[in-house]
Design a protein around this nucleic acid. Structure first.
Lengths: 342, 342
DNA sequence: CTGAAAGCGCTTACAG
DNA sequence: CTGAAAGCGCTTACAG
């Protein structure tokens, strides 16, 4: 049905070997220009496209990379992850490779192994691995294929060295955000996290919040609630926080999407932002400047970050095998929700 | 290196045929339970995972579907598309298939054909095809693999019947949104579109806006600007609209993200929303209720829509070949930005 | 109920 | 500079 390399070879009057050499630009094969032209013309005439499965089987590589997402629900509600997917997709494509999107359930060790063994992909990028997954990932990197963990670096140096990571320093940035609030005079600063703290990134931001408080001898350990990625969950978490009757004058939100919900809850309850309660978010999502109160937030760079993960992976695929740890700088973007202005 | 079916066969003391039958649950093969157990045990012991390329080459199908996105940049700024990706991913996975993400450049006919011929995927879902791509898509559906167009139905019945589509009625819904504004007494209702009108969906919403105006003998043809998906572009489009010095009391925004930018621009220029200028958006993105002014908008169902596209495609893959056209209902969600309340 | 064997469409030493 | 042939790891009629 679809033309095969044999048909191209026949039409061009050469062997399949030659067709393969020409189409794959094998340097050392020394194909004459005349032969090359004939092959190319024949392939074009037949509309020939190599069968990827056959190529993969024969060559042992699939020219595909896998992007493993922690939980597909994240994509529904938060824009950070979609920007990662977009940039990874773009970068993969720029290198003439394909992108397979995978989800692995919470702690499903076999899921990772299946993916590593079935030969569909040559390498994988794992977004926001959970604390209990590092062991499997290290095994995969050692035994099967290069792997880059995106978005979090574990505290333990030792485990971390086992595969490459690209991360921004969630701990440092969260601490920075909270210190900004402290510098503005806030003493009671709550925190609403954006997901389960089994995710390293969630966990690190929470630790950053606590660290900033401790450095300034503040205690706000109990002014804390968990949301679950969506603005709606942030809204409800904020209501729960308010119902505790603890006093606080600022909230550090685990991410911007949640911050949107928090701000709406505060407004609905008659608080002014930032006059009564100040807010700092995290991520600088595209809508951050366009909400009810333009959001002061930690700007992250998911696109650059995604591209870097792909580049690192491709280097490993080319044979550079020393794991490395890329760090991304972030910085505070000051808008109105923190009260530093006006 | 990785175990093969031959090794499993050897360990279980059976032939590779039997291994294949057991692992693929071939019904009519009548494998005895004892044999089945032996094979399963051997496979588990070796950690056997079938090689996907070999399976694909031998069986002629890849158990993978391709999701073709119109322009990866959409993922960066607008949440609609990411919700589609998420739901498609989830549904594909539910059916034990894999998802390949593809981008095809504007009008790149060969890109589609390459994808259709290289054997990586068994079928494709094309999100928001452009007007000039329908011919290639019809060819692919006829000659290579089932294809479902997501998100738009072409006006011409004839072309449309050539492959399945799932769509919501952008024209109808846009018209509904604008009629809502008219019912509230607005006479001069502008429109800011969210992308190039080479996309059927963009085009249809604009036509819906015009149709509503015409039905009520209103003319606002010139109160129109184009944005480009982001809130920021909506902000600037709104500034351009304001600088025209035409009078208008309402704007129909091509999507919610753009509406966020529009509202911010109006507030910055001293207008009150909805008192001075009313806004209706489109999509009901997760943040729609959490912006500066809770947004009245057309609620769409990208998740259900994505799942339906997958289901339709899978039916075609099973042999049901009659193209069908799924329609998704939408409805107006009334919040505050239109001024119907308070 | 099970196995020997052909074949899927490529790549890649190897030989000349 | 080019070709014959083995082999990648599966599936699937076919034979028994």
């Amino acid at each position: 049905m679809r033309p095969t390399s044999a048909q191209v070879a026949k039409l061009a009057g050469v062997s399949r070997t030659t067709v393969s050499f020409v189409l794959n630009n094998v340097e050392k094969s020394g194909i004459s220009n005349a032969t090359r032209e004939k092959v190319l013309a024949a392939a074009a005439q037949l509309g020939y496209e190599p069968n990827a499965a056959a190529q993969s089987l024969a060559s042992g590589s699939s020219a595909t990379i896998g992007l493993v997402l922690p939980d597909i629900h994240h994509l529904y509600v938060d824009s950070f992850l979609s920007r990662v997917v977009a940039s990874v997709s773009e970068e993969v494509r720029r290198h003439d490779m394909k992108l397979l999107i995978e989800t692995v359930d919470r702690g499903d060790t076999f899921g990772y192994q299946r993916l590593a063994k079935n030969g569909r992909i040559d390498g994988m990028i794992v977004v926001n691995p959970r604390e209990n997954e590092y062991t499997v990932l290290a095994e995969i990197n050692r035994d099967f294929m290069p792997l880059v963990a995106f978005g979090s670096r574990r505290r333990s140096q030792q485990t971390c060295a086992e595969f490459s990571t690209t991360s921004s320093d969630n701990f440092f940035n969260a601490r920075l955000a909270v210190k900004h609030l402290i510098a503005l005079g806030h003493k009671n600063i709550g925190h609403i996290s954006f997901s389960s703290d089994s995710f390293t990134s969630v966990n690190s931001r929470e630790r950053g919040w606590l660290a900033a408080l401790e450095e300034h001898n503040l205690n706000a350990r109990d002014i804390r609630e968990s949301a679950d990625l969506s603005a709606e969950s942030g809204y409800h978490a904020c209501l729960r926080l308010l119902s505790k009757k603890q006093s606080f004058s600022a909230i550090f939100a685990g991410n911007d999407t949640v911050a949107f919900g928090i701000i709406r809850a505060l407004i609905d309850k008659g608080y002014r932002v930032p006059e009564d309660i100040a807010i700092v978010g995290y991520d600088d999502i595209p809508l951050a400047a366009y909400g009810a109160v333009p959001l002061t937030t930690i700007k992250t760079f998911p696109e650059e970050h995604g591209r870097m993960a792909v580049k690192t992976l491709l280097e490993h695929l080319k044979g550079i095998s020393e794991p490395n740890h890329q760090k991304f700088d972030s910085h505070l973007v000051i808008r109105e929700s923190c009260g530093a202005r006006k």
